[in-house]
Design a protein around this nucleic acid. Structure first.
Lengths: 220, 220
DNA sequence: CTCCCTCCGACTGTCGACAGACTACCTGCC
DNA sequence: GGCAGGTAGTCTGTCGACAGTCGGAGGGAG
């Protein structure tokens, strides 16, 4: 009998695929903040039933990507400057916990190597804006994952949608300044030194700078 | 024309009411961790359609109260000891941010008064286990709310379901030791003194003790 | 010209039904 | 007696339809 590799069968439900499609459409900027997301229109455009779209939209609502407006109508979420500042303070707290746990772990050097690889991806993204965003967020997710605390990852991911709309709502010309290897390297170095206070301060400063950036840069 | 007070009309959707009913049923212990939650059975018991129950269940899944088992079947979530420890470390990080922001605010004394009121509720709960749980969680939610950072509250609430199943999965005879006014007062005192490092240490210790408690106490 | 009433269109809320997939059991053959 | 194959039962996945509610356009009365 043949042992040829068979293609992996996609076992995801239709709802999951619709969810990914909608999330991607929003975070890629195809839908602008404030845009109305009608169930019938989306269902027709995606070729699925309303119920399926509805479940995906409800999921995105809990993620904070879309928000309920008048009469339950859903719109792409818009974050105020104050919300953005709060969001990045929460991120600082979560990622501060991440570096705390990483430094406390015995395999710290492995984590450092993984983080360096993530920064390399960021450097290799070149001028591709979308790739830069993915690499930047990839670094921070990796940071949380390396803590070995799944609940921390879960909490961070709960904020991910809001982070993405914040980034995508800004002028792509302005954003790259935040997503450079140079802004992430100090975090790794502090972890490598085992310098917990220093690492916390760097993370704090990183997030404060990002919050400043996204609240001062004009929305596109 | 009469200005008599009219009763408030409940504008919540059926889905929201089902959601609250299910959440309450789980966190009150009516359903035990691991119990299967069938859509048809719940729909029949609640007298609503499957779709409505389904949406509520999906919401609870995102909250972490229920988890998908084999073939998409949902069950009441069970947290491992490791997950509980991670959960309380994330809580410590979030509530640490809360006290940080409270201490930085100009109206710190108002926050102190509000927190004292919350502790009084805890003291007044007497021996009623459910009331104690509500008062305890009420204190910690209040703590987050008083930070003035809605995103922080949102993140905390995202963990609330998991916190509740952790509490309710323990023997009610053992739990009250964690939920005393004496365990919460030091947090308030440190905030009142404006002692940020002290407040952080107290929160950290509070959460570590809770995690120890819930991972050493036998599941009922 | 303005205001009010009515009708129409659009959107979400809720429901019942069909289909697909997996389990467990049961039967018949070796 | 054991195993392969078939077969009912049960659960979720997905769909289409009906109903309720709101906003706005349009027409008629003052």
């Amino acid at each position: 009998m043949s042992v040829e590799p068979l293609p992996n069968i996609d076992r995801s439900t239709l709802r999951e695929r619709v969810l990914r499609a909608l999330r991607s459409a929003i975070t890629s900027g195809a839908y602008r903040p404030g845009d109305h997301l009608g169930e019938v229109e989306l269902a027709g455009r995606l070729g699925v039933s309303r119920g399926t779209v509805r479940e995906a939209l409800r999921h995105l609502q809990q993620e904070g990507l879309v928000t309920a407006g008048h009469r339950g109508m859903l719109r792409v979420n818009t974050l105020s400057a104050e919300e953005i500042r709060g969001l990045f303070r929460v991120r600082a707290a979560l990622e501060g916990l991440a570096v705390t746990e990483i430094i406390a772990r015995p395999d710290r050097s492995a984590a450092v190597a993984a983080l360096r690889a993530a920064v390399d991806e960021l450097a290799g993204a070149g001028e591709d804006f979308a790739a830069k965003v993915e690499a930047d967020l990839g670094f921070h997710v990796r940071l949380c994952e390396l803590s070995g605390n799944p609940m921390l990852v879960e909490s961070w991911r709960h904020l991910e949608g809001r982070i993405r709309v914040t980034i995508m709502n800004r002028d792509p010309e302005e954003a790259p300044a935040m997503m450079t290897p140079g802004r992430h390297a100090p975090i790794i170095e502090a972890i490598e030194r085992g310098d917990l206070p220093g690492a916390l301060a760097v993370v704090e400063e990183h997030m404060a700078a990002a919050a400043d950036h996204f609240t001062s840069t004009p929305a596109r």
